[in-house]
Design a protein around this nucleic acid. Structure first.
Length: 727
DNA sequence: AGCACGCCGACT
DNA sequence: GTCGGCGTGCTC
């Protein structure tokens, strides 16, 4: 008899193991197939996936059952097993979560193809069906076989009942076809550019030798052209390629270029694709109809047959680390997948992560450089404005005098301006000047942001309410808004430059489906003078008429409680600054800051990546922060704070006792998270920092589960290795 | 997470 | 004597 080891579709942590079932006599199963099995005492039929097939009987099995249904389609291959195992052991994921990465979205919810009933000509009309009104329908369908469904003909003015009659009597035939929900929009050809020497060298290095590369190219150095060429060569060799981008830089411009270069060979994974579209794109890849994918991190797991090239653009971005289970890091998984088949991984950025540059220095990966702008443009001129001095001089507005002057000048010359502020809304908090009351979200422990439509919004849970006229605490009318968001910037600009055309791009204005695209086109075609935006305008956008970039509050990201605050600030300033002077006119960047002597800000001003890196890496080494250590974050949440505190204290003492033998791991906490409540869930955390190997992490996970296992149901636990945020 | 089993009290 | 409430433990 044949036996199959299965992962069952069961979310419970206790189900996170393989179950052995018998394969019915005369049937076969293979790794990656979906089956149904009777499970548990009630023999409920649940979905399961085959991970292993064996011939010999497993030892000591009580009550072996048989698979009840075998589905023909297979979702992954034997060679994916190490990947599943890696996701499990590195990121403490369950089998099920790891397997689900490889499945088309919606599979377990019964998602399937959309079918359409296409019409075909079957036989010529005869007898009373030779009548012209029938003939014209038959002619039309005969001329366009399989192109119409009934509704199309009706729309063209034919009578629905005539069409039905023809079908009923067999003159027309209906065939059901799987319809791909795919974007058929065509794009203008994007012809290859001639590569400059540095681009050429990079392409050659990657083509010649498999391995992992760090491509450090300054903003505007033509990285995209290198990607396109690498993909073209990989395609020519008959292999598949994946290009990963952070969600926010999957811009219309990027899509335009890739579609324009590769046409139908490519699939694009928008975050805005519907589940149905994702399902279909998955199958298009599985069937080998496309050879190239571009998308956010989950596109890495599309079922290509022969993946040999992965490009990770803006590799410093935190979006490559998943914050939901499985909490994998796409950079690590890409490398893992490619090194076992002699593939090539190219991680690219104008501001590489400290971690990647350190790896390059250690010789683990190969560094390639694009040190010059590809077009005539030079790097923009950078100026830091000390906002404390502005204040001293009596300027209490959002804009410093140098920025005002530069904006006036740019507008006079009809050049475009980008203003960056990484905060949406109007004011960041609202408080009562009489009693000091601050409006906070009742469900979350953060202050509410005031929006111009007179609402108070929680940027954590999204809840909105109207701003009352009087203070809920002392009933005074002295309610005032503090802090600045993009809405206030927009208002200030409209006041200062009433004739300028202004656009604001943030999550609030790009919510509707095509808003982003429309605004992008408007700005590109010079229907707008000043673009105000958050992080979403910081990368990818390439507008040739932008000569001035204003960074309104460079220190915002500097004061976060995170060892990466400095790195993030440097990256953000460099990226935003890179939007200036990409055409033939020189660019200028004005950085407003209250801490103008900060090394991240000064280094960004000097375009000095190397200098910034040297200082930052030393700091990390000194404080033993990643990449010189790992951080394991354990967050406990509960509706009841007392339950939470009691349990996390127990957990803390258990962990400390266990970790006493590891002198290279320190335990921090327990303490409330910086955002100590979200949607009424209280949050506390314990951080472990140090030399945490996979086995240690696994042991900690098991310890956490066994310690909390018997505790209240209300208690939820999340474990993350090297989390993006420690808030 | 379900589901069955079993131990115990309440009620015909 | 039997019905059902819920704590416990297992799922090939």
């Amino acid at each position: 008899m044949t036996y199959a080891q299965l992962v069952v579709n069961h979310e419970a942590q206790a189900m996170d193991r393989l179950f052995t079932y018998g394969v019915p006599e005369g049937k076969t199963v293979a790794v990656g197939q979906r089956v149904k099995v009777p499970f548990g005492q009630g023999n409920r039929r649940v979905d399961a996936f085959v991970l292993q097939v064996t011939e010999e009987a497993p030892q000591d099995l009580k009550g072996l059952k048989e698979i009840s249904t075998i589905f023909p389609e297979s979702y992954f291959e034997k060679e994916h097993l190490p990947l599943i195992e890696a996701v499990r052991s590195r990121y403490l994921a369950t089998y099920l979560d790891a397997v689900k990465l490889l499945l088309p979205k919606g599979l377990l919810q019964g998602m399937t193809y959309k079918t359409s009933e296409k019409l075909y000509f079957a036989r010529p009309g005869e007898g009373k069906y030779a009548d012209p009104r029938y003939q014209s329908i038959l002619q039309e369908v005969k001329a366009h076989p399989g192109e119409y469904i009934k509704a199309d003909l009706v729309r063209m003015g034919f009578s629905q009942s005539s069409v039905n009659t023809l079908i009923k009597h067999g003159f027309l035939e209906i065939l059901s076809e799987n319809q791909y929900r795919v974007n058929r929009q065509s794009y203008p050809d994007y012809a290859p550019r001639v590569l400059n020497a540095a681009q050429e060298r990079a392409v050659k290095a990657v083509t010649d030798t498999p391995g992992t590369y760090l491509l450090h190219g300054i903003t505007g150095s033509g990285k995209t052209e290198v990607f396109l060429e690498l993909i073209r060569r990989n395609l020519e060799a008959g292999h598949d390629s994946i290009m990963l981008v952070p969600e926010i830089s999957l811009t219309p411009q990027m899509i335009e270029r890739f579609k324009g270069r590769f046409g139908k060979d490519i699939t694009i994974f928008h975050s805005r694709l519907s589940d149905g579209e994702r399902h279909d794109e998955w199958h298009r890849v599985r069937q080998g109809r496309v050879k190239i994918a571009i998308g956010a991190r989950s596109a890495l797991f599309l079922p290509f047959q022969d993946l040999r090239l992965v490009i990770i653009d803006e590799e410093h971005e935190s979006t490559y680390k998943s914050e939901m289970s499985p909490k994998y890091n796409a950079k690590e998984m890409a490398e893992f997948m490619l090194e076992r088949k002699d593939g090539r991984l190219v991680m690219a950025s104008a501001t590489p992560s400290i971690e990647s540059t350190l790896r390059a220095e250690r010789g683990e990966i190969t560094k390639l450089e694009l040190p010059e702008r590809a077009t005539a443009g030079v790097l923009p001129e950078m100026e830091i404005v000390d906002m404390r001095a502005e204040l001293m001089a009596g300027n209490r507005t959002i804009f410093s005098r140098p920025l005002m002057a530069a904006m006036t000048e740019a507008l006079a010359k009809e050049e475009q301006i980008i203003l960056f502020l990484n905060r949406r809304g109007f004011s960041t908090f609202v408080s009562c000047r009489s009693c000091g009351f601050v409006f906070k979200c009742p469900q979350c422990d953060i202050s509410l942001t005031y929006h111009r439509d007179n609402s108070l919004m929680c940027h954590q849970c999204g809840q909105r309410k109207y701003l009352p006229k009087t203070c809920p605490s002392c009933s005074s009318k002295y309610i005032k808004q503090f802090g600045t968001g993009t809405e206030k910037v927009e208002e200030a600009i409209r006041q200062a430059f009433p004739q300028a055309r202004v656009m604001r791009m943030d999550r609030d204005t790009t919510r509707q489906k095509d808003a982003y695209e429309t605004m992008y086109q408007d700005f590109k075609n010079n229907r707008c003078d000043i673009l105000i935006g958050t992080q979403m305008i910081s990368k990818g956008l390439d507008f040739k008429d932008v000569t001035l970039v204003g960074i309104l509050a460079a220190d915002l990201s500097l004061n976060l409680p995170d060892y990466r605050a400095s790195e993030k600030t440097f990256q953000l300033i460099t990226q935003v600054a890179g939007r200036a002077g990409r055409g033939d006119k020189p660019g200028k960047v004005i950085i407003q800051s209250y801490s103008p002597e900060e090394k991240a800000i000064v280094a960004a001003k000097d375009h000095d990546y190397a200098g910034f890196y040297r200082q930052e890496v030393e700091m990390r080494r000194m404080l033993q922060n990643p990449p010189f250590s790992k951080i394991l974050q354990i967050i406990l949440t509960s509706l009841q704070e007392e339950v939470l505190i009691k349990n996390i204290q127990i957990l803390d003492s258990v962990l400390r006792k266990y970790l006493i033998k590891y002198d290279k791991i320190i335990v921090l906490g327990p303490s409330p998270c910086l955002i100590s409540k979200i949607k009424n869930q209280h949050r506390w955390q314990i951080l472990l920092k140090g030399d945490i190997g996979e086995e240690t992490a696994q042991a900690v996970k098991e310890l956490v589960q066994s310690t909390l296992g018997k505790a209240q149901k209300d208690l939820k636990v999340s474990i993350d290795i090297n989390p993006n945020s420690m808030m």
